[in-house]
Amino acid sequence: MSKPDIKITIKPGGKASIEVNNVQGQNCVSLSKGFEDLFVKQVNERSLKTEYYTDTEQHLNIEET
């Protein structure tokens, strides 16, 4: 699996679109939380992708090594 990364696009005026890639399970939310908190108002609902619902067992195994 590719390395996890975050793409943040910021418009003039400060509106930011935050996209998290290559993270399985709900860890994607933890990964981007610090960046999301920099922009205090949520404009639209979080759009979850298929990886969000993927079992995180693989992730946890990698974390422990």
Partner: peptide
Amino acid sequence: MSHTVTREGVKCS
């Protein structure tokens, strides 16, 4: 991809 979200209102040091 895992998720996308749009936010605004910058909190900056």
